[in-house]
């Protein structure tokens, strides 16, 4: 029972881990390149959620300081860092998509297995 309550308290971490595994699994097992990329994005989002959750305090407010008022504030640093992380993830996604387009133009398929087959035939 105690474990269940503790999981409930750390629901964000649990959700992040579940998402991470979903993303990881999609990325490694699907042959479709676009699905691989989606899996990669889910995985990254999970990490971002995890990171932001480390700074969250239940009942905390946005960290805007006002004179004379003393509130509980959420730690702003993880959110600021993850903003950078999201930018990086977006640029990697854009770049990967451009590479996928190039592969599709050449092979006419998005399936990694088929591409491997076609390539083996070309190399012969």
């Amino acid at each position: 029972m105690d474990t269940v309550f503790r999981l409930g308290d750390n629901l964000y971490y649990l959700a992040a881990m579940v998402l991470f595994i979903i993303g990881f699994h999609t990325m490694l097992t699907h042959a479709n390149l676009i699905k691989k990329l989606l899996g990669m994005n889910i995985m990254e989002t999970a990490i971002f959620l995890f990171f932001v959750a480390t700074g969250y305090i239940r009942g905390g407010r946005a960290p805007i300081m006002q004179v004379g008022q003393d509130h509980l504030y959420v730690n702003p640093l993880p959110s600021a860092l993850i903003l950078t992380g999201i930018v990086v993830a977006v640029s990697i996604t854009a770049y990967a998509l451009s590479l996928i387009i190039r592969l599709y133009r050449h092979y006419g398929t998005l399936d990694a297995n088929e591409i491997a087959l076609l390539r083996a035939r070309e190399d012969e």
Partner: peptide, 9 residues
């Protein structure tokens, strides 16, 4: 392009 995509992922 193939090698770069594999490396990138």
């Amino acid at each position: 392009a193939e090698a770069a995509l594999k490396y990138l992922i």
